[in-house]
Simulated scan of single mutants.
Amino acid sequence: MRFIILTIFPDFFTSFMESSIIKKALERNLIEVTILNIRDFSKNKHQKTDDYPFGGGPGMVMTPQPIADAIKHAKILSPESRVIYFTPKGRVYAQSDAMTFAHDKTDLILLCGHYEGVDQRILDKYVDQEISAGDFILTGGEIPAMLVVDSVSRLLEGVLGNEDSSADESFSKHLLEFPQYTRPRVFEGMEVPEVLTSGNHKEIDKWRLEMSESETEAKRPDLYKMYKKEEDK
Rank of each mutant, 00 (worst) to 15 (best):
M1I: 06
M1E: 05
M1P: 06
I5W: 03
T7A: 06
T7K: 03
P10W: 10
F12L: 04
F13C: 00
T14I: 15
E18Y: 05
S20F: 02
I21N: 04
I22Y: 05
K23H: 05
K24R: 14
A25G: 05
L26P: 09
E27T: 13
R28W: 09
I31M: 15
I31A: 04
E32M: 09
V33P: 04
V33Y: 07
V33N: 00
I35M: 11
I35E: 05
L36R: 09
N37P: 09
N37L: 13
I38L: 03
R39A: 06
R39W: 15
D40W: 07
D40Q: 03
F41E: 07
S42A: 06
S42R: 07
H46W: 13
H46L: 04
Q47N: 12
Q47K: 15
P53T: 01
G55P: 05
G56Q: 13
P58I: 04
M60R: 01
T63A: 09
Q65D: 11
Q65K: 10
A68Q: 13
A70E: 14
I71L: 03
K72C: 07
A74E: 01
I76H: 10
E80S: 14
E80G: 14
F86H: 05
T87A: 08
K89M: 10
G90A: 02
G90S: 08
Q95K: 13
S96D: 15
A98L: 03
M99R: 15
M99P: 03
H103Q: 15
D104K: 15
I109N: 03
L110C: 06
L111A: 08
L111M: 06
L111E: 00
H114W: 11
H114I: 08
Y115E: 04
V118C: 12
V118R: 00
Q120N: 09
I122Y: 01
L123Y: 00
K125N: 12
E130I: 03
S132V: 00
D135G: 02
T139K: 11
G141Y: 07
I143Y: 11
P144Y: 02
M146L: 06
L147W: 04
V149W: 09
D150A: 09
S153A: 15
S165N: 08
S166V: 09
S172R: 12
S172Y: 11
K173G: 05
H174C: 11
H174A: 14
L175G: 02
L175R: 07
Q180R: 13
F187T: 01
E188Y: 09
E188Q: 14
G189P: 13
G189Y: 15
E191N: 07
V192T: 10
L196F: 07
S198Y: 05
G199A: 03
H201R: 02
I204W: 01
D205S: 11
K206W: 08
W207D: 00
R208E: 01
R208N: 01
L209K: 11
L209I: 02
E210D: 12
E210Y: 05
M211W: 08
E213C: 10
E213F: 07
E215T: 12
E217H: 10
D222P: 13
Y224I: 06
M226F: 02
Y227G: 12
Y227T: 13
K229D: 04
K233D: 05
